[in-house]
Write a protein that binds this DNA or RNA. Structure first.
Lengths: 144, 144
DNA sequence: TATTGTTATACTCTATAACTATA
DNA sequence: TATAGTTATAGAGTATAACAATA
């Protein structure tokens, strides 16, 4: 069970991916902080910018407990970035939706995520296509 | 400043990287939880398994405040995975080092990180080499 | 009865500032 | 005076369990 992958090439790729993950996180937190948001708040705002949804579904999307979402949406709502609306078809449900300002913030947030964009500019279209296909296969995605 | 990268290919690669990051984190937290460790505790244990070091340097390595490290090492020490030793050359310094059990746990932890290893097994050596070079260039590393 | 969202609780991580013991 | 580590404090995220309203 131990030291299963002595292969140096594979280990290097694993380490490179670790570096990508670390850098991605730094950039994400930094971009969020520039708007005085925490990472968790930025993630919730981002999923809501794509599509308003019930509290419960936010939790499933972010893979956390529903009780956490209550607090995060509370803080976003207190800052006027998100609002809670009733669901006409089920009075138990509350739909969380971004305000206009919330949508604007989400947009600026995404623009700030230069991490993958700028480095990618150094790769040719053929190379980016190659990278896309390799990542797809690594993730076991359809079309790989 | 807005919507700088309309290029669909680049956007897809960015999204794939986001997926890699999310999956990597899940696997990491899961592996840590299997040993009743938090992600932060697992990260500290891992860097110490490579090389014992002063508290201050752990903080620099993990890019957090030194005061945080105190608590994390406290908890690792309470569980017998890490110990604090005096530094003979400077009595202000405390060197954090893994115990035998800490080293063993770190080893098992790394084995559990199948994320990048198993999917990578589906790629040929040539493809892994290609992926390595693309990631290197993306990260602006030497040898790219 | 089951589900949605919330509250209450407890723990960890995080940064800031102040403290101590060394240097 | 400067540095290493710690403590005190406060805010945020997290999971668990219990709760009210609704289905």
């Amino acid at each position: 069970m131990s030291s299963r992958s002595a292969d140096p090439l594979t280990l290097e790729v694993v380490e490179l991916i670790g570096t990508v993950v670390a850098r991605y996180h730094e950039e994400y937190e930094h971009a969020a902080a520039q708007h005085s948001l925490t990472g968790a708040q930025a993630r919730v705002l981002n999923v809501l910018a794509l599509e308003p949804m019930p509290m419960r579904r936010i939790a499933r999307t972010l893979r956390c407990e529903p009780s956490n979402v209550t607090g995060i949406v509370d803080r976003l709502e207190a800052r006027g970035l998100v609002e809670r609306r009733p669901d006409p078809s089920d009075r138990r449900v509350k739909l969380a939706a971004p305000t206009d300002e919330g949508r604007a913030t989400a947009g600026r947030l995404r623009d700030a995520l230069d991490f993958a964009r700028e480095p990618l500019a150094g790769l040719s279209v053929a190379e980016r296509t190659l990278l896309r296909d390799l990542l797809r296969r690594m993730l076991g995605e359809p079309g790989a």
